[in-house]
């Protein structure tokens, strides 16, 4: 697989930094790919915005900063408005259907799913929305084997929260169960 860029975006408290780290761990350590992982830092994160970027490749990565996104996930309208322009032609935009209502259009696929509502209503804990995100991403992109993601998740989450987080991950897979990567026209690696 060539260079593939993923950005998880939203606001502070949505757990996207941890989600990015789990994704990096799953792809880098469990799947043995090259990864470069960066996060928003400083005033950018204090102002409420939050961004977590991952470059994945089978080859060593020359440049670790994302510029042409293959996959963009947005949990807020603000994040979507800010970052959609960086989507590559043929890229995949995943948005939360409750918080992102104005969808950009362009030569990329859009997938709108109730991530936050699934976490708060179905699972009863909005804080696990980040794990729902991971399930959605894994299912739509076909990038990561389920076991790798589960293993990475268990490595990184606080002890005692395994059950709820795993349920959230499964809920993410379930949310897009009907959609396959092909249907979402995600660029497959």
């Amino acid at each position: 697989m060539d260079r593939y860029e993923i950005r998880l975006s939203g606001e502070g408290g949505q757990g996207l930094v941890l989600a990015g780290a789990i994704l990096a761990e799953a792809l880098g350590i469990q799947c043995g790919k090259h990864v470069a992982y960066t996060q928003s830092y400083g005033p950018e994160s204090r102002g409420g915005g939050c961004r977590s970027d991952l470059v994945v490749s089978d080859q060593p990565i020359d440049y670790p900063i994302c510029s042409q996104l293959d996959l963009l996930l947005c949990l807020t309208q603000k994040a979507c408005d800010k970052y959609w322009v960086h989507l590559k032609e043929g890229g995949l935009l995943i948005v939360d259907s409750t918080r992102v209502t104005r969808l950009p259009s362009g030569s990329f696929e859009v997938c709108s799913v109730p991530i936050l509502r699934t976490a708060s209503v179905k699972l009863g804990r909005e804080v696990v929305a980040n794990m729902v995100c991971l399930g959605v991403i894994a299912n739509l992109s076909g990038l990561i084997p389920r076991e790798a993601l589960q293993k990475a998740l268990l490595e990184r989450i606080p002890k005692g929260t395994e059950q709820i987080n795993q349920r959230a991950l499964e809920a993410g897979y379930g949310l897009t169960g009907a959609l396959t990567p092909a249907m979402a026209h995600a660029p497959l690696p």
Binding site: G28, H34, V35, A36, T38, Q39
Partner: peptide, 10 residues
């Protein structure tokens, strides 16, 4: 620099 200091890699 800030990028190298804050980025993660294997």
């Amino acid at each position: 620099d800030e990028v190298v200091a804050h980025m993660y890699e294997k």
